[in-house]
Amino acid sequence: MEVSEAIIHDLVVKVAEALTADGKMLVTAESCTGGLIGASCTELAGSSAWFFGGVMSYANEAKVRGLGVSEQTLATHGAVSEETVVQMCAGALALGGDIAVAVSGVAGPGGGSKEKPVGCVYIGWQHKGQPAQVERCLFSGDRKGIRDATVIRALEGVLSL
């Protein structure tokens, strides 16, 4: 098992323990990670006790149809933005669960810009009934490294809620 996989596994175990102790369910809305957060969570046996499910919304149309992200938000701010991630959190919570985590970013190697370079990722967390918290991250490395770093930070954020 490589280092990032071990770190992710350890974080998932901690998230599982925390959510189970609180009787909470996690729901995900993922773009740049392509479902890796949900896949990491479901690697752990018994995850159905604390993991509700998620939406892998890679295309903008999937964000609109699957999560209710506004086309206006996407046109004005782009998919990689705080505004989009806030709406992704809300859309995920509308499906079910108690705590949402949403991610959208530029995993590379192409697709970056001056304002949103490769490695720019917005991560949002939201408890049902509370406002979302969003963090803009700048990760370095190759595509796999950026995606793994995003999963790690997303899970760390769940633990800090």
Rank of each mutant, 00 (worst) to 15 (best):
V158T: 04
V101A: 07
V27M: 03
M25K: 15
S40H: 04
H9F: 15
T76L: 15
A39T: 11
G111M: 05
T73L: 09
L161Y: 00
I8Y: 02
E83W: 02
G96T: 12
L19T: 00
E83M: 06
E17S: 04
I123H: 10
R143K: 12
P131V: 08
G96N: 07
V3I: 10
F52T: 14
A102H: 06
I123R: 08
A18S: 09
T150I: 03
C137D: 02
Q87F: 13
M1C: 12
T76P: 02
E61Q: 14
T42L: 03
E5M: 09
T150Y: 01
M1H: 14
A49R: 12
G97V: 03
V80S: 03
E83H: 12
Q72R: 13
H9V: 03
P131K: 03
V13A: 13
I123Q: 13
T33K: 00
G145Y: 13
E17R: 06
Q133T: 09
A79S: 10
C137T: 06
P109Y: 07
A107V: 06
P109S: 14
G145V: 09
L36T: 00
D148Q: 15
R136M: 12
V12I: 13
A21C: 04
C32Q: 03
E115S: 07
K144G: 00
E17D: 10
T42C: 14
G68S: 11
K14M: 04
L67D: 10
G34P: 14
S104D: 07
T42E: 09
S4G: 04
A149Y: 11
G68I: 14
G97Q: 02
A102V: 12
L95H: 14
D142E: 11
T28I: 05
D148A: 10
T42P: 00
A18W: 05
C41F: 00
G54W: 04
G23V: 01
A90G: 12
V158H: 04
S4A: 13
K144M: 10
Q130R: 01
G23P: 07
K24H: 05
G66T: 11
A75S: 13
S140Q: 09
G78P: 09
Q72S: 14
I152L: 10
Q130I: 02
L11K: 11
H77R: 01
A90M: 08
K144I: 11
R136H: 08
E61V: 10
V27H: 08
P109C: 13
S104F: 04
T73F: 02
L95K: 14
A90N: 13
